[in-house]
């Protein structure tokens, strides 16, 4: 599946390794609500279970996020995708790619995995309907060769969902 594509990753730099260890320790002490880190010794790839918030279209449903970190994190954004099956959402493609600006152009080292997760849960919670993006089929076809969502030139146009 294209959703399990993995970019060619160099090993984490010392700075990235140190920061991620602190983020992980902080996560384990006070994880964000609705998220569960799938335990693994691979610091460079986190798999996180997301549970839809109560009172939303996704209440009680569980999805899995995959977070891959580049060599020079946090100077570069992590790659965040939903593993199959991806939730039906106007900004989430069926291959798991997420149209969310903080994962691409608006990334900042002030953000953390935790804050990104909260933003994604907020995006899910704001969904008006369970449907795919309009250009889902064309986009997924173009990504069939395992292309990373970070290579896409996204157009962010929706401030509500």
């Amino acid at each position: 599946m294209t959703s399990s594509s993995s970019p060619s990753r160099k090993a984490l730099s010392k700075i990235a390794c140190n920061r991620l260890q602190k983020e992980l320790a902080e996560w384990q002490v006070s994880p964000p609500s609705g998220f569960k880190y799938r335990v693994s010794d691979n610091l460079q790839r986190w798999v996180i279970e997301v549970t839809g918030a109560a009172g939303t279209l996704y209440a009680g449903e569980t999805y899995q996020l995959q977070v891959d970190f580049p060599e020079h994190y946090p100077m570069e954004a992590p790659q965040v995708i939903f593993l199959n099956p991806a939730p039906m959402h106007p900004h989430i493609y069926s291959n798991g790619h997420i149209c969310l600006d903080i994962l691409y152009d608006s990334w900042s080292p002030a953000m953390t995995v935790s804050s990104v997760c909260i933003s994604i849960l907020s995006m899910l919670s704001s969904s008006p309907a369970k449907q795919r993006p309009q250009d889902n089929d064309r986009y997924v076809r173009n990504c069939r060769n395992g292309r990373s969502p970070k290579e896409t030139r996204w157009w962010f146009h929706d401030d509500k969902v």
Binding site: K14, I15, N18, R19, K22, E23, P74, M75, P109
Partner: peptide, 9 residues
Amino acid sequence: GICYAKHLP
């Protein structure tokens, strides 16, 4: 605020 460490490696 970026690498979360007091000292650089």
